[in-house]
C-alpha cells in the first residue's frame, strides 16, 4: 500500500527477494539470506520469511555474493515455501 502510494519498488519496502529468470537457463536472485542446501538437482535458498526451492539438472552456482546469487543450468521448477 505504501509502496504503491509512493511508487517505490516493493522488494525494498517489504525486504523481499527479487528473482530474474532468463529462459530456463539462468536464475538471478537478489536479497537472499544464504544457501540452505545445494546439489546438481536442487538448490534451497533462504529468503526473508521463507525459502525458495529451485529444481533442475546440472545446477551450478556461477557466482555467490552476500546479497546476490547466480544459478546456471537447466531449470525445471521454482517454488516458494513460507
Amino acid at each position: 500500500m505504501i509502496a504503491d502510494f509512493f511508487e517505490l519498488p516493493q522488494e525494498i519496502i517489504l525486504d523481499l527477494p527479487r528473482i530474474t529468470l532468463v529462459g530456463n537457463m539462468q536464475l538471478y536472485i537478489e536479497n537472499h539470506r544464504g544457501v540452505i542446501s545445494y546439489d546438481e538437482n536442487e538448490v534451497r535458498l533462504s529468503v526473508n520469511k521463507g525459502e525458495v526451492i529451485i529444481r533442475g539438472e546440472g545446477l551450478q552456482i556461477e557466482n555467490l555474493l552476500e546479497e546476490e546469487l547466480l544459478i546456471k543450468g537447466m531449470l525445471e521448477s521454482l517454488s516458494y515455501e513460507i
Partner: peptide, 9 residues
C-alpha cells in the same frame, strides 16, 4: 564477503 564462482556439485 568472500566471493567465489563456478560452484558445482
Amino acid at each position: 564477503g568472500l566471493g567465489f564462482w563456478d560452484l558445482r556439485r
